[in-house]
Write a protein that binds this DNA or RNA. Sequence first.
DNA 1: ACCGTTACCATACGATTGTACTACAAAGAA
DNA 2: TTCTTTGTAGTACAATCGTATGGTAACGGT
Lengths: 198, 198
Amino acid sequence: MPKRVDHQQRRGEIADAVARLAATRGLGEASFREVAAEAGMSVANIQHYFGTKQALLLGTLERQSTVLGARILQQLETAQDAPPLEQIRTVARALMPTDDVSSDAMRVYLSFAASALTDPDLRTTQAFQRGFASIAFFEDRLRAAAAVGDLADSADPAAAAPALLSLILGLSLGVLLDQFDRAHAGTLLDGHLELLSA
Amino acid sequence: MPKRVDHQQRRGEIADAVARLAATRGLGEASFREVAAEAGMSVANIQHYFGTKQALLLGTLERQSTVLGARILQQLETAQDAPPLEQIRTVARALMPTDDVSSDAMRVYLSFAASALTDPDLRTTQAFQRGFASIAFFEDRLRAAAAVGDLADSADPAAAAPALLSLILGLSLGVLLDQFDRAHAGTLLDGHLELLSA
DNA sequence: ACCGTTACCATACGATTGTACTACAAAGAA
DNA sequence: TTCTTTGTAGTACAATCGTATGGTAACGGT
């Protein structure tokens, strides 16, 4: 049954297994053997789809970023006609650990971020930078808010956008470290958006 | 020459070696052998001061948090008579990766934070929670700012304090991931403080 | 019908891991 | 001085790591 398998899908299954492991036990526990057990296949088969471990991790990051991007776009559709600041809130909440799914996603993302702290190759990865693409979206929506007079005079979209993403990441970290709970993080985010609104 | 050594100091030397390793090559590379080489002593001697690896990492975190705390208090003395919001800026800048020393410190901190994502024991560690002690300081100074009319009406100290620390952590992550440079992060922080000030 | 490609597996290899054990020299207590 | 503690080191061990290799079975193309 060789030709029958969809390579892309198989790689996806494996990458999901890595992500599941990273979310529950940390990236450091994602050895070939553990990944194989989690994915329900042999170690050698994982080698077959991703030759080396670095490629496995890179592929996982790639997958994670596209899945996350798709989820955000989907969420955004539900708020298509909402005012700009409301759209920002929607995306922000999709990014933050509001439920188990998004919590795991953020855990995986932060695990990779930690690895990237000491790995320049990982830092310049396209898939990794894509995670910051939301900055452009935020800036665009902030400008739209300014255009309709919803933005505070003292707020500069070019500065508020990266600050907003930073705040989101920081809040997410706080939630995942049990510093405050999910609801509280949402309140804090709302407070910040309040500061930004006219 | 047994009794002559100061246990606390020796443990400090070793913990510093671990921190140096974590900052440059990541926590995952901090094996007993690597730590021994970095500290310039035998593996068995590290076992002697910290029995197990978990204890070694815990001790390193403990040390890192006290050293960081001391550095912040020292920085704070230079701004003892400054207005509240200026004191906040001082502490924030001491926390953020503004130079190589603070960059390494933040890298170490974030590495431990990543481990804590999937390690409940580490998350509830006293040394770890102490890292969040600055929230109390921020809230206190924000209240002081409100008392003298320096705080924006729409800002609530109880909410702005944790949000501020979250922003700082997020900005720091951005800097260490080469998302924006140190100066830019400083500007973004100033922009946020601007939003908070009356 | 046959052959080559391909998905999948079992296993082995050398390196590295955390930890345990033993030894020894130096110094304070007796 | 002798004895006991203690700082330091060498080394051995089982486990786990990433990776390489060889083999098997099933399909697609000819």
